[in-house]
Structures are given as C-alpha cells and as structure tokens.
C-alpha cells in the first residue's frame, strides 16, 4: 500500500467496487444508528426502573404517597389552582411589558457615550448594580410591606400593584444587561454608516442599531421571560393570591401537599414548551451565517459576564 501510494490504489479499486462499498457503508450506518437508539432506550428504562423501585420501596413511601399524591385532593384543588395561575399570568404579562420598556431605556442610557450624559449613565449603572445585587424576595418584601406601612395618605395598598413594581424593578436590571450586550454586539461601522448619511446619534440608534440588537437578543430575552414567569410566585409573600398562595391555602385546609404537585405540573406544562422554543431559536440563530452566529456568541459571552447571581431562587 505504501509503496503503491494511496491515491493510485483507490482509483485502481475501480468503478465497479465503489458503489458496492458505498451501499455497504450506508447499511452499516443504519444498523449502528438502530443499535444506538436501542441502547439509549434500554439504559433509560433500566435507570428509571431502578429509581422508581428504590423510591416506592423506601420506608417512608406510603406516608409521602398519601401526602403528595392524593388523587382526590389533586382533582378537587386543580380548578382553584389553575384559576389562581391566571393571576400569575397577569403579573407576568403586565410586568413583562413594563420591563421591556424600562430595560431598553436603561440599556440605551448605559450605552450612551456623550460626556454630557454622564449623570444619566451613572444613575442607570447604579440602578442596575443595586437591583442585580439584591435578592428578589427582599425587594418584594421591602416594597410590598414597607411602602404601604408608611401609611401615607393617597399611597395605594393593593399588593398586586407592589408585586408588579417589584418584579419590574428586579427584572429590568437583568433585561437591560441583555439589551446592552446586544447593542455592544453591533459593529461600530453600522453607526458610522448611519452617521455618514447625516442621521443623528439617536436616529442611528433607533433605525440602525436597536433593530439589529433586539433581533439578536430575542433568545436570551426569552430565557429571562422564563425566569420571570417562575418568579411570579415570590409575590405570594406580600399577600397576592396567586398560584403558590392558593396551594398554600388548600394545604392549610387539608394538611396535604398534593396542591404543590398540581402547581408544579402547571409550571411544567407552561414553561417547558417556552424553554424548548427558546432553545430552538438559539439553535436557529447559530445555524445562520458566520456574522449572525458570531454575534450570538458575542451576546452570550457578554451575558455570561453579567450573570453574577440571578434573582430566581
């Protein structure tokens, strides 16, 4: 083989033997793919079988089964829990809109470069630092109990309102960092091109930079939506009767934990599709040409830096 030289040897293999070997290779590939699937299926089955066996045969299982898996309580509590989840959805939708707007303002303020805007940059930076540093629950407590506690005339007492405000304050700090990473990922030559046409800095931002930046950060934004959706349960602490509070109420009446299981199921049903959709978007963005994927990874790395401690518990 070495004496004859590789290329010669293969070409002498001839056209007759080539199609045969190619078909053979394809058959081999198919068999090995089938084998992989089988192995994956079997190992999953074994692992979960063993886990279920261990749990079900543990000494405490009957008690756990009775307090967490009570079918009658599950079905009787489910309508109330689903109804309470509508409150979470309201919290989520209203604060999300406010977050997206406030965060954009913060990001634009922090991305500004003009010396005269330094105070604005400073305020935005301090804001973001504070609300990323504080545990979300604390912000919710301080706002939800502190401000109504002042007993000032004309200050509202509705906990729902403070829930919205608290979630908006906390999450807009995170989301502004997502936007900012997106803005930073747009090459300065885009701004230069816009400015060279006579567009002002704000016009360049509005028509050229932001539309591209926002498109790039849709997947990480969706990730934050998922976090927000889960964090809506935190406002139960200040008395908003949402899904978690509702399950606590049922638990208090029945001394049974099944409602929490129902709540968990509701979140799984809602959140997993959203998470899958986000993954799909990220994968699609990565598949798109070099520029876009380079940009996506730039956004991702900028985000990695900003994610010291997520608010979510």
């Amino acid at each position: 083989m070495t004496a004859q030289g590789g290329p010669d040897a293969t070409s002498r293999g001839g056209p007759a033997s080539l199609p045969g070997s190619r078909a053979q290779r394809r058959r081999d590939e198919r068999t090995s793919a089938l084998r992989s699937t089988l192995v994956a299926f079997l190992s999953t089955f074994v692992v979960f079988g063993v886990l279920v066996y261990i749990v079900v045969n543990s000494p405490g299982w009957p008690a756990v089964q009775a307090s967490f898996f009570a079918p009658d309580i599950f079905w009787s509590s489910l309508p109330g829990i689903v109804a309470a989840f509508l409150v979470n959805i309201q919290l989520f939708l209203i604060s999300e809109v406010l977050i997206l707007a406030l965060a954009l303002v913060l990001a634009v303020a922090r991305s500004s470069t003009a010396p005269v805007l330094f105070p604005v940059r400073l305020m935005a930076t301090v804001y973001v630092d504070i609300f990323r540093a504080l545990p979300g629950v604390l912000v919710i407590y301080i706002l939800g109990f502190g401000i109504p506690g002042l007993n000032l005339p004309g200050v509202p007492t509705d906990p729902f309102l403070y829930a919205i405000v608290a979630l908006t304050l906390i999450y807009s700090a995170y989301v502004s960092e997502v936007y900012r990473a997106g803005i930073a990922s747009i090459h300065p030559s885009q701004t230069a091109a816009a400015r060279s046409l006579g567009l002002s800095q704000p016009q360049a931002l509005r028509y050229v930079v932001l539309p591209q930046a926002i498109r790039r950060v849709v997947p990480p934004l969706l990730n934050d939506f998922i976090g927000l959706q889960k964090d809506t349960v935190l406002v139960s602490y200040i008395g908003v009767v949402e899904i978690f509070r509702q399950s606590q109420i049922v638990e208090a009446g029945t001394f049974n934990f099944t409602p929490y299981l129902a709540t968990a199921l509701v979140f799984l049903v809602v959140t997993i599709p959203l998470a899958r959709f986000t993954d799909w978007l990220v994968a699609r963005q990565a598949r798109r040409g070099g520029g876009a994927s380079g940009a996506a990874s730039q956004v991702a790395s900028a985000l990695g830096r900003s994610r010291g401690g997520q608010a979510a518990p």
Partner: peptide
C-alpha cells in the same frame, strides 16, 4: 449632521444595514 449630508462616504466593507431591504437602505437618509 448637516455637514455629513453634503459629504457621502462609501466604505471598504460596504456597511449596508443588513436588517433593511435594499430600497430602505437607500431611502433611509
């Protein structure tokens, strides 16, 4: 901005706005 209106520049790397159609690139200014 008023000066830049009177002076056009074309860059080595084109620097078209990738999110806009050709016609919108041209009419933005």
């Amino acid at each position: 901005d008023r000066i830049r209106r009177r002076v056009g520049i074309v860059f080595q790397s084109f620097n078209l706005f990738p999110h806009m159609r050709v016609i919108d690139n041209v009419t933005l200014g």
